[in-house]
């Protein structure tokens, strides 16, 4: 069935709400407004204000409330408008949700799902456009997911809710309008990376909103007879390094594409894993294409220039191949 990424997210939540009375959705504008990205349109009418809860503009407060509800036996889905705003809730997520199992000696777990939009590309400037997935991927005790396809948008929420520990899901804002086929069997895991395009000359490793760009770059490279393998990390913590290593053993070269800033990026972590596990398979220095190290600009041409683009990826691949 053809549908948008947005519709896939909506269906996933709808199914969870319908199937399990412990599931409820909470966040800014999720109820009356139908969701900032319209992912919960009609939910208020369908499930009522008890389960579709509009919150005040207080991330620290409502994420904390979600943790409390999870501890109390509920299965909350907490929606945070953007990753920029989620920084207000970092204390709850890092110090509480991620740490409680450890702090309680295994007595408590926090089966919480936090969803948030991330990324640039819509001229929303430096306070609504950043990619801080790596901040969360740094923290033990939580799982971090980055659905980049219709199937993952549809399929990742179920296993995330079933997970006994907190899961943070990043939805790149540019992906909501992505259209694609949802096959009958859309169920998926939240543990492995996926090879989105097989290739032999270089591994393009990416996730989230950069996946379509990496695929576009691979297509361009194919026209130059360069066969790029595109790997979608899907799960940013814990990283599926086995899939990366298998690809590197084949291609011996890698370019990591990450919309985060270069310094201390998730790309840096992936490169470190490659250096640790694949050193003797490397036939060229590993390269990365990240965002320029500036607050994401408002002006369209500046914003485009600041972000990874297919052209930059192609150029990086050529360099790695010595062409």
């Amino acid at each position: 069935m053809k549908m948008t990424y947005r519709e896939a997210v909506r269906q996933a939540m709808h199914e969870a709400l319908a199937a399990d009375p412990r599931v409820f959705l909470m966040g800014e504008d999720v109820g009356k407004y139908g969701g900032t990205y319209a992912c919960s349109k009609g939910f208020l009418e369908a499930f009522g204000p008890e389960r579709i809860r509009d919150t005040p503009l207080s991330e620290l407060g409502f994420v904390g409330a979600g943790i409390g509800a999870a501890l109390g036996g509920m299965r909350p889905i907490v929606e945070v408008m953007t990753v920029n705003f989620s920084l207000l809730a970092l204390d709850q997520i890092v110090n509480t949700a991620a740490a409680l199992r450890h702090m309680s000696g295994g007595q408590f777990s926090v089966p919480l799902v936090v969803r948030m939009a991330t990324g640039a590309g819509r001229q929303l400037a430096a306070q609504h456009s950043h990619s801080l997935e790596n901040w969360y991927a740094h923290v033990p005790g939580i799982k971090v997911l980055a659905p980049a396809t219709i199937i993952d948008a549809r399929g990742m929420l179920g296993p995330a809710l079933a997970d006994p520990d907190p899961v943070v899901i990043f939805e790149h804002a540019l992906l909501y309008n992505l259209e694609g086929e949802l096959p009958d069997d859309w169920r998926c895991d939240i543990a492995t990376a996926a090879v989105r395009r097989a290739g032999t000359d270089v591994s393009l490793i990416t996730y989230g909103g950069s996946l379509p760009k990496a695929l576009a770059a691979a297509e361009q490279l194919a026209a130059e007879s360069i066969s790029a393998e595109v790997i979608d990390l899907r799960v940013l913590r814990p990283l599926d390094t086995a899939t990366l290593a298998a690809s590197l053993r084949k291609t011996h070269k890698a370019v990591v594409v990450d919309e985060g800033w270069k310094s201390g990026s998730l790309a840096a972590e992936v490169m470190a894993c490659i250096a640790e596990q694949c050193f003797f398979d490397l036939d060229a220095p590993v390269a990365r294409v990240c965002s320029e190290e500036v607050p994401i600009p408002y002006a369209k041409h500046m914003e485009e220039a600041a972000l990874p683009q297919p052209g930059k990826i192609v150029a990086a691949v050529r360099q790695v191949l010595g062409k």
């Binding site: 011996h252 003797f280 398979d281 036939d283 060229a284 220095p285 360099q319 191949l321 010595g322």
Partner: peptide, 25 residues
């Protein structure tokens, strides 16, 4: 000399000093 090239040279018994380079840098 890339790590993978070193490994391969050892397997093939190739003298790396005699190999002409075409890779990046």
């Amino acid at each position: 000399i890339t790590p993978a090239a070193r490994k391969r040279a050892k397997e093939l018994g190739v003298d790396l000093d005699a190999v002409a380079a075409t890779g990046p840098g």
